[in-house]
Structure formats: structure tokens, C-alpha cells
Design a protein around this nucleic acid. Structure first.
Lengths: 196, 196
DNA sequence: CTCGATTGTCTAGCGGTGCTAGGATACGAA
DNA sequence: TTCGTATCCTAGCACCGCTAGACAATCGAG
């Protein structure tokens, strides 16, 4: 029994290694460089071992996305709670949230892509959505729900605000928007969307 | 001389055929299905002919993106000018613009991806940006510049509004946002962002 | 302790990808 | 008619995601 447990632990540990290595490789050289051959070589196993943990490359991307969602939720909560200090609480929290979101996307582009741009085979916006993803949305909702304004459903407001942040993040990183005006865009967005 | 002109015409015609076929294939079966082999077979030429027109697949995507930008600019202008009728002009125009943008993205997902999600090797947000792309942004600016509000640079406002629309378009199509609330999201977005 | 069964892993290979070198062919100019 | 150029295709490269089947290590029963 203990032998079996040890094996399960080792197997789980190897799975985490695969995910961490895939993420590292993707952040260093982009997702195109994350091939099953290279990934297998980096963890010192052969390709079929990957397929004993995941159905395919898509599921590996999905696994990276889940770890990213957990991290993002934590980062957003840390930023908003740190911003709860002086008088203008809600507005400062929303600004901090927006900045933290964009900073996460900028500092972890590959993870962000795994979450929102690539197909990781994950369910979204329904009851089958994995917990980390729901929780990341919940982290947005906690702060944004306060500034939705009268008669506006907090979830709907959060979706719109999130979409705006997502658009800024992706268009900026793809070179579609000049990066130097990001801060002013955030200010405008928060100022107009949030009802203080 | 006339012979050479005829050849140039035929060559240009074949290039348009390549771009149109790539677009058609992408809309039918997705960009993953647009392989150089399939594309070559559809136009009844061999693969190297493609490479005599374009440096690679990336440039073909870029060419599709340019045709898409021209179309989108026309669609946006058509929608806004059609909405210029009654009293509340600006607000109605902005709503029409937003709806037209999202409708274009929904009806031409492959073209939209070529423009904003895939790497078509195009320059953005600088002087080297191809004319059709600049014009598409100009079409947004024409309507959105009117509702930027005092003290807000029209271009900056347009960028923010565009990013929000882009986020809604991509997140909805990727299944990250439930599609049925799109109209309410548009209303909220226009209502909050635009200064009437 | 031995031996068969199970589990784990690797080698090798399949059909596909973007892209290109080099040979064949058609064509316009002399 | 002949020659040089321009055009096109066949064949192939290195790489991709993925998997069948051979092999080795481990486990449990006798």
C-alpha cells in the first residue's frame, strides 16, 4: 500500500514537473517552441510518457492555464487588498485591480495565452468550468461588483470590464496598441466604467 | 510590352485567387486547415507557386488581413452613416458602430483572427502600418472621436473603446463569455464609455 | 526462491507541416 | 529555327503531434 502511495506521489510530482517545464519553455521561447519532443527531452523522459499524463499537447496547455488562473486570482486579491487604505476605497481598488491584471498579462504572456488565447480544452462560463478559473473570475467580481452601479448586474459589469482589460492586454502585447499610453488608458477605463 | 502587361495582370489575378482561396478555406475549416498543400491544390498549382507570390504562410495571412480591414472599414462606415437619422445622433452612431464591429467579428471569424489574433507580419501603430489598417482605425475614430469627452484625446479614447470591443469579440467567440448577453454588454459599454 | 503477469518505458515510425533545391518545360527574342 | 530566360513541378528536408509494439523492471502467487 505504501509502495503504491509512493508511486502515486512520484507520478504526481512528475506531472507537476511537466507542467512547470512546459510553462517555463513557453515563457522563454513561446508556445510554438513547446513541442512534445523538446518537452520530453527537458524532463529526461521520452515522448510517450507525456501521453501517459495528458491526452495531448492541448491538455498540457490547459494544465498551465489552471496554474496561471490560481496565480492570477491571488495576484488580483493581493493588489486590491493592498489598495484598501485611504478614503477613496472603491476607486483605488479598481485601479489597482486593473493594473494588476495588465501586469500579470505582461509578465506572464505565455500563461496568459494558455488561459485566454489558446485552446486548452477547458470549459468556460458554465458549471463544468474548473474551480481555478471560476475563482479568478470571482476575484474580479469581488472588487468590480462594488462599482457596477445601480441596476447593473455585477456579473455583467465584470464581464464588460474584464473584456476591456483583455482587449488592452492582448492588443498591446501584439503590437496593435502603442505600449507607452497604457497607464492613461487604464485611468480612462476605470474613470468611465466604474461607478464610484 | 503588351505581352508583359498581360502576364502581370494574370499574375496579380492569381495572387488575388490565392488570398481569396485562403480566406475561404480559413472561414470554412479554420486557419489550421489552411496548409500550403491544400491551398496549392485548391488553386490548381503546386506549393512553390505560393512562395513566388508570398514569403510564406504568414504573408498570406497578412494579405487576408488587409482585405478584411478594407471590408471592416466599409462596414463600420455603412453602419454609422445609416444610423445618422434622428435627434440622438452621436449615441445612436456609437451603438451602431459597436454592433457592426462585433457582427463583423462574428461573421468573419477567420478574417478577424488574421487581422488581430494571428501574426501576419504586419506593422501596427506606427508609420509603416499598411493603409487599410490605418483606415479601419480611422473609421472607428470618425465616430468615436465625437464622444471622447472633454480633455480626452480622441485617439486614446478610440483605442480604449476598440480594446473593449476586441475583448468582447474574442472572449465571446472563444466561449469565455456566454453569448446571449452580448447586446446588454454593448449597451452598458456604450452607455458608460461614450460621453453624449 | 522462482516464475508468470502486470506495469512502465523506450524505440521507431506514421502521416502531416512549412519550406526549398534543382530539374524539366514552355515561351519570347534573334 | 535556335537559344536564353522565365515559369513551374517533383521530390525532398527537418520538424510536428501522436502511437504501436518491443523490451525491461517490478510485483504477487505458488
Amino acid at each position: 500500500m505504501s509502495v503504491q502511495e509512493r508511486k502515486e506521489r512520484e507520478r504526481a510530482s512528475r506531472e507537476r514537473l511537466i507542467v512547470a517545464t512546459a510553462r517555463e519553455l513557453a515563457e522563454q521561447q513561446g508556445w510554438d517552441a513547446v513541442t512534445t519532443r523538446r518537452l520530453a527531452e527537458r524532463i529526461d523522459y521520452s515522448q510517450p510518457v507525456l501521453y501517459s499524463h495528458f491526452r495531448g499537447k492541448r491538455e498540457i496547455i490547459g494544465a498551465v492555464a489552471l496554474t496561471g488562473a490560481t496565480e492570477m486570482a491571488a495576484a488580483l486579491r493581493a493588489a486590491t487588498s493592498a489598495a484598501t487604505s485611504a478614503a477613496d476605497g472603491a476607486g483605488a481598488r479598481v485601479t489597482a485591480l486593473a493594473r494588476a491584471y495588465l501586469e500579470f498579462a505582461e509578465r506572464n504572456p505565455a500563461v496568459y495565452d494558455a488561459m485566454f488565447q489558446l485552446d486548452g480544452g477547458l470549459a468556460f462560463a458554465n458549471e463544468d468550468t474548473p474551480e481555478p478559473l471560476k475563482d479568478a473570475f470571482a476575484a474580479l467580481l469581488e472588487t468590480l461588483g462594488e462599482v457596477a452601479g445601480d441596476g447593473v448586474h455585477p456579473a455583467l459589469f465584470t464581464e464588460v470590464f474584464w473584456a476591456a482589460l483583455h482587449g488592452l492586454a492582448t492588443l498591446t502585447r501584439a503590437g496593435r496598441l502603442p505600449p507607452q499610453d497604457t497607464e492613461r488608458r487604464v485611468e480612462l477605463l476605470v474613470d468611465r466604467l466604474a461607478v464610484i
